[in-house]
Amino acid sequence: MQKLGNDHYLEGLLSGDESVIDLIYKKNFQSILSFIKKNNGTYEDAEEIFQDALFQLIVRLKIRKFEITSSFEGYIFTVCKNLWRKELNKRKKRVRNEGAIELVVKENKHSSFILEQERWELFEEKINQLSDNCIKLLKDYFNKVSYDIIVERFNYSSQNVAFQRVFKCKKRLAELIKKDSKYQDLS
């Protein structure tokens, strides 16, 4: 059987083709729903996140220079994951600042996320340009792996060396990001 390509989905979405949108729902929603339910969400949360992801994809296709480099399913899943992370952060903050009334205009919600998602994609792209060693090291460091373990795992002579290496990798990443014109556009 011929696998439906990204173009089929994207064209269908852009033209508002109901059968394509139904197919996208059928093929993708269940995995988003299980992810969100596993992470303290409800069906309604999953529905809103999924619909926002599809809508924002259309906006990006229409007015941003954008193409999906992965599979359509992979893209939607990543975006939904990020949207849900943002939503959870927001809810945590809301609990902390009880009583604070949040007035977010609908357009603003989408535009913020689209720009944040674009930045996220740019950062991912740049991380993947680092050496394998740097990628692993940064991951360990930010996942709060202790210096003792990092020293052992990466065969460094001391914690100070590990510390220096983390900074070098981060510096390199910052340079790669800064150099890219897309970053200038986003900041």
Binding site: R85, N89, S112, L115, E116, F123, F142, K170, I177
Partner: peptide, 14 residues
């Protein structure tokens, strides 16, 4: 931004 990106649990709002 890089720190937020690498600390996966956080999402930096623009």
């Amino acid at each position: 931004e890089i720190n937020h990106h690498l600390k996966e649990e956080n999402w930096l709002s623009d």
